[in-house]
Design a protein around this nucleic acid. Structure first.
Lengths: 218, 218
DNA sequence: GTCTATAAGTGGATAGAC
DNA sequence: GTCTATCCACTTATAGAC
């Protein structure tokens, strides 16, 4: 026999609505009252499901991180797995850029972030990278992805040619960046990621590969 | 209480105190009242020097960015200049990590950020990089630096061995990251930056260098 | 240029009714 | 499990006295 009336709130519904609210209005605009209003309830009702506001934010951050795909580390060579992971990571964060400053405070105790770190670190070590190097690589990629999701580079420029021409001689075309925001940001990410992986592959060949030559990376 | 002979507030003093306050207590704790208290005045007095709270934050962000050294682009080859710039940029941001989320929203109209973009872009173009590529390189480095300053990777882990051992097999040593936070974060940055520059140098040799062989980069 | 006073509102969170 | 009622510290910003 189902319950006559379903509870209006569930943890999942709260997290989904909180995510949408943060996406739409930003982290500073996110309050328990505002969230409750969005859910059609009053503020205090949320406290039946979460103890504090930060617990809600942690759940949102964990859900965002949970969308990242690390499966490549199980089946592909380390470089291809890093590439797949970085793009998936970037997609997950750029889908919810406003939560990034909160999320980037550190993997902390959030399960999804720890599972991701575990998969990446494990995959790199399995491929032969020394543990300390694997840590550095995972962190470096995290820096790059978080930074790219944090704030669009192109978005920072305004669409007013006059503003830049006067004082910044090389930025004469900068106003055009605003038009091509997405392709500039993605192009910069692609360039940086490719260069990074190129450099890592060179170091791998120089150190790990020289020792375990002939051993497949997967 | 008699009024002081000298004005107690100046824009510079306000910005310096605001920076210290944000460093010490974080962006959410920063309020005009809290700042005024720190300066020994009442909240409204600040509005004689800045029109809004955001104007103060912009001034703080601009001061932080203003500490970045881009002089290498005038005198050194592009790769060495990028390396110097990236480290200087990182030092400036990690000295004030709590302002990074605000600062990273985009270069916007802040003079110091625009001057920095101008110097970097101009230096790269002068070295022979195609304009579109120069934009991507500057943005990619910005992503990496901002991400590295935004949140320490190592800090995210707690110093409790038991917490990770159970569920994340590869993170058995992760609690040790907390001890070596600074060296892990700097090592990850150094590795990523070197790999990135290695990859860029390869592309430069493949494209620009092939066309303008023999031309000095400076 | 700093002050008092105040506007007009939001914040997270709790107690206890139903 | 949601409600009403409530707490009160706190927010940015303005008006006008001195």
């Amino acid at each position: 026999m189902p319950r006559p009336r379903q509870p209006r709130l569930t943890r999942q519904l709260i997290v989904e609505t909180a995510t949408a609210l943060i996406d739409a209005e930003g982290l500073p605009a996110f309050s328990t009252r505002r969230l409750a209003a969005e859910l059609g309830v009053r503020g205090p009702s949320l406290y039946n499901h979460f103890a504090t506001k930060d617990e809600i934010l942690d759940a949102v951050a964990d859900a965002v991180t949970g969308a990242v795909d690390t499966s490549g580390f199980a089946s592909r060579d380390w470089a291809a797995a890093l590439l797949d992971w970085a793009w998936s990571y970037r997609r997950a964060l750029t889908a919810h850029p406003n939560i990034v400053p909160y999320l980037a405070q550190g993997p902390g105790r959030r399960p999804a972030a720890l599972a991701m770190a575990d998969a990446v670190y494990g995959g790199l070590v399995r491929a032969g990278w020394p543990p300390a190097r694997a840590t550095h690589i995972g962190a470096a990629l995290r820096y790059f992805v978080a930074g790219s999701a944090l704030g669009s580079f192109a978005r920072g420029f305004v669409e007013d040619p006059e503003l830049y021409a006067a004082h910044y001689p090389h930025l004469r075309q900068a106003h055009r960046l605003a038009e091509h925001q997405q392709s500039v940001d993605e192009g910069a990410f692609a360039l940086g990621l490719d260069a990074l992986l190129y450099g890592l592959a060179a170091e791998y060949a120089r150190t790990v590969g020289a020792v375990e030559s002939g051993r497949p990376n997967g």
